[in-house]
Amino acid sequence: MSRAAVLESTDEAVAGIEDGSTVLVGGFGLAGMPFDLIDALIRQGAKDLTIVSNNAGNGDVGLAALLAAGRVRKVVCSFPRQVDSYVFDALYREGKIELEVVPQGNLAERMRAAGAGIGAFYCPTAVGTPLAEGKEVRTIDGRDYLLEYPIKGDYALISAYRSDPMGNLVYRKTARNFGPVMATAATTTVVQVDEVVPLGGLDPEAVVTPSIYVDRVVPVETRHYTVQGAR
């Protein structure tokens, strides 16, 4: 993996994302959502995308805007239905989008496995539930587990707080969420950051995502949205 490129525009940052790509999109609700990269992806025009993200969009911004633009064929997520997920809800009810529901911890661990070179793993989550259908069950030391496969992305679009010119990343509070895991699990990892600090400006002991996982970094104006209360 060559060193990360620090780019000037989000349009450069999302260049090359092809139709039909699997794109891992960071964020838990709106915290950590890479709004600027998604807006650039909408301008870029790639379609038939499979989006892997915790939610399926909130309000009209970020992932919801990408869905509204008709670019997404399938959403793999843990929690689509929220008080403000009306864009997804309408597409789903009209049969215009596929949904694969994955328990939140499995979503994270399956991406972690992809990034860590694990072929598959046995996990106790969802045993005996409808989400176990079609999965191999293995009993280990008297407890049942399901065989879970990695989720790998062609691209990851994530948001971090600061980067250095190498692409080392630190995050801010619970906006960290899926970012560090997704960064490891995609062929090309694209990060929007609030700030690129000079080399040596990040404490190596405090780096959360080491630069080896990062391909493209683009600084953006800080932009936040707060939506109160999912159900």
């Binding site: 843990s78 929690f79 529901v101 328990p103 499995n106």
Partner: peptide
């Protein structure tokens, strides 16, 4: 009803 599991099973 749109299924949504979140972290409940974990």
């Amino acid at each position: 009803d749109i299924p949504a599991v979140g972290g409940a099973m974990d």
